[in-house]
Amino acid sequence: MSSITRDEVAHLARLARLQLPEDELEHYAGQLDAILHAVARVTEVAGEDVPPTSHPLPLVNVTRPDETHRSLTAEEALSGAPAAEDSRFRVPRILGEEA
């Protein structure tokens, strides 16, 4: 297994939307590398013929009757919002300047 570099951690942090300071990248690189080496033994044991298990219950397409129930009011849904305006979630700008 390859070892994990500081640059790879920076890439992972970007993918995971975590704005990490430079000094933390090195710290996490060491820890993630150690954890990945510790868990790499999963690759040693299972052959091609072993099917993967994604879930302990063999469930497929659980459905329920299509009936309406009481749901949250707009006020309830917005009750935890960091910012709201005109009964909607207010969010920071989504498009860049150039768009």
């Binding site: 297994m1 993630l32 990945l36 044991v45 299972a46 298990t53």
Partner: peptide, 25 residues
């Protein structure tokens, strides 16, 4: 970040895929 790594293309089969097989075993 560990999960993001294990699910990323190129590592998915080796890490997440193998782990799911171990789950079967």
């Amino acid at each position: 970040m560990l999960g993001t790594y294990a699910l990323s293309s190129g590592y998915y089969d080796a890490y997440y895929g193998s782990a799911q097989k171990v789950r079967t075993l």
